[in-house]
Amino acid sequence: MPQRIDGSGETVRFTFEGREIAARAGETIAAALIAAGETTTRESVVSGAPRGPFCMMGVCFECLVEIDGVPNRQACMIAVEPGIAVSLQKADEVAA
């Protein structure tokens, strides 16, 4: 399991697939998800295979999620905000 090495920082709560996630203020959604043990963030639009954050620097586009109903957002480039509803980017909602 992932761990946090320091205890400081304000906690921000949001949901991923309906599950509550406790994040640190200022961190990205992808970092918060990984810290919470959520490694799968999308399904491949080609095969439906599960994918998760890979580069964490906005290059690979593997961490695409749906945020408050808006699809294809880069979880590693967007900071957490209280109360946002994040969900898996599902293949069938993106392509046939």
Partner: peptide, 20 residues
């Protein structure tokens, strides 16, 4: 899922203090 770059591991450490 669960496979990242080494750079990603460092970014997690730098930005969130998260380690595996």
């Amino acid at each position: 899922p669960g496979v990242t770059t080494v750079g990603a591991v460092q970014i997690l450490l730098k930005t969130s203090g998260v380690v595996m």
